[in-house]
Design a protein around this nucleic acid. Structure first.
Lengths: 326, 326
DNA sequence: TTGAAAGCGCTAACAA
DNA sequence: TTGTTAGCGCTTTCAA
């Protein structure tokens, strides 16, 4: 900048004024400055500017597990859209393998003075983030509430969704329902299973724990779990899949064996309606996790003061798969 | 930081040393500093540190169209993985509606002094980026080569892929192939169509332009296009879809009408193998667009000098959909 | 309207 | 090992 000022024969401040296009500058002078800047390949340094003026970094952070998973990618897409509307850049960081990595990633983003943080937590305790929030970096949690910290969040109504879907299955005459879930360490999964239990209790039906397959991490495990359940002496007449990854494995196995058991699956997914057998999904507004979370965050960033909010997204049972399959 | 220094009774520089954990500092002194820092809620300012030390921003930018599209999300996921391995944060910016927005987004990232840029270009001329590259911000282009600029890129072998797949169809006896593509303004689409033309020419077959449907933007348009082609007096006996969005619409229509025409589609997609009819995809390593591009970028960032490189990813024809459909 | 000086938060270079 | 000084690139403050 000093070079530009010298070359244009003006002061530093004049260059600054021209670059920022704020206060009026003599037209000829401004032209000289612009010429010099062009000549010298001058590029404003955003960080230096923000440092001195104390303005914000115009950046928010998103902490997420895995962009190659449709669920997370859709959240990121929603966040990106809102960030863009606020002329804010988005840093997407990966939470890594464990709670420690996740915290490290969060602290890194705080050092970078992001204006705010959206976090899809993977585990651990978040009480250490209290100080960061108090120091002025608001955080909104997505898909799961923070642990040990009272902060904004946008979550899905896992409990009621699972309970109501199970009640629907029960009303259709099913009394034995095979359940496939990922690790019960995930609160979301626990909530879904609790909803199923609640439905059985409400219907006065006994719950048989042998029908619960846990640690179903993906489609392959889901296939195995379905086969195990089908081979029981009294097999289930319906299946409940805890997430879309397990439902894909279950669908494949049920289709391959031409089984007609009912299937209800948490999470909608692309092309679900072209699956080769009918089933139902518990869908919710996946993208809204990102958009509502980001909007909440920007309210905080703008300085609005309000008690921590938890937005709960409701679910809806929808038919999927090819119905008139032959 | 000054507060910390005062509170700990040491100099600024000592605080700096403790924070950065580099050169040895007296243990008791370091403890005092850490105490004071904790007490006062001190948080290092990454930007200020980078400004003074002239170190990099440890950030790269990715310019991409739409994270909710599997193709782009997979690229982003690959980039994120490599960025993480290089302890670098990733800013994902959206290219917006037109070439102007795209340029604006790029310049914004340059002002932020990202270490490098990965760009999935949507159009326009990139010669204006020459100066940014020369000023030290390397750029790698993904999926499409830059226009008016000699720079690194990672692209797919659209021409050969389409040509070879078409030759396969021809060798199976097809002489009339319905083709569905998005706008031919996209070079990738043009290359695919050119590959098809080349196959027809090589086989000595005439090309009938009425079999080409352009501006097929999504599944719905694809369905309409397939119906139009099927209603021709001499309809095609096979279909070639230019991308996965059109193949989904084509698949649906062909399945609904229980048509047995062959279908070849550019781009693999999740769950393709569970589609209710057999077809083939031209698959390639989607994720490698991101990983190879990012690795190339980090070589540039590390200061390695080499002539601009174009990495071409080959394609492979793979069966998809349920084969023993009944 | 323009410019000089000071300083944002931090660290390099040097001195003690 | 510790501290002092200067200054990264920019903008604020205030005087001209």
């Amino acid at each position: 900048m000093a070079d530009v000022a010298r070359s244009a024969g003006v002061s530093l401040k004049t260059v600054s004024r021209v670059i920022n296009g704020v206060s009026t500058v003599d037209v000829a002078m401004a032209a000289r400055v612009r010429d010099a800047a062009g000549q010298l390949g001058f590029r404003a340094n955003f960080a230096a500017s923000a440092l001195r003026s104390g303005s914000s970094s115009a950046t928010i952070g998103l902490l997420i597990k895995d962009l190659s998973n449709e669920f997370y990618a859709t959240i990121a897409s929603g966040v990106a859209e809102v960030a863009r509307a606020h002329q804010t850049q988005l840093i997407t960081a990966h939470s890594g393998e464990n709670a420690e990595d996740e915290m490290e990633a969060i602290f890194d983003l705080c050092r970078r003075r992001v204006d705010g943080l959206l976090i899809v937590p993977t585990g651990g305790n978040h009480s250490a983030l209290r100080s960061e929030i108090d120091l002025g970096i608001p955080m909104v949690f997505l898909d799961r509430n923070p642990v040990g910290l009272d902060a904004d969040s946008v979550v899905i109504d896992n409990y009621a969704g699972a309970r109501d879907a199970t009640l629907t299955l029960i009303s259709e005459g099913h009394t034995r329902i095979g359940v496939l879930v990922d690790t019960l360490n995930m609160p979301t999964m626990r909530q879904r299973v609790e909803g199923i239990h609640a439905a059985f209790a409400a219907a006065g039906l006994p719950w048989d724990d042998t029908l619960l397959s846990t640690n179903v991490r993906g489609p392959a495990e889901a296939s195995i779990a379905v086969e195990r359940l089908l081979s029981l002496s009294v097999p289930p007449t319906a299946f409940f899949c805890g997430n879309n990854r397990s439902s894909i494995g279950a669908l494949r196995t049920l289709w391959e064996q031409r089984r007609t058991e009912a299937l209800v699956a948490f999470d909608d997914f692309q092309l679900a309606e072209l699956m080769p057998r009918p089933f139902r999904v518990l869908r919710y507004d996946n993208r809204a996790l990102g958009t509502l979370g980001a909007e909440l965050l920007f309210r905080r960033i703008s300085g609005e003061i309000f008690d921590p909010v938890t937005v709960v997204l409701s679910t809806e049972l929808c038919p999927r798969g090819i119905q008139n399959f032959q």
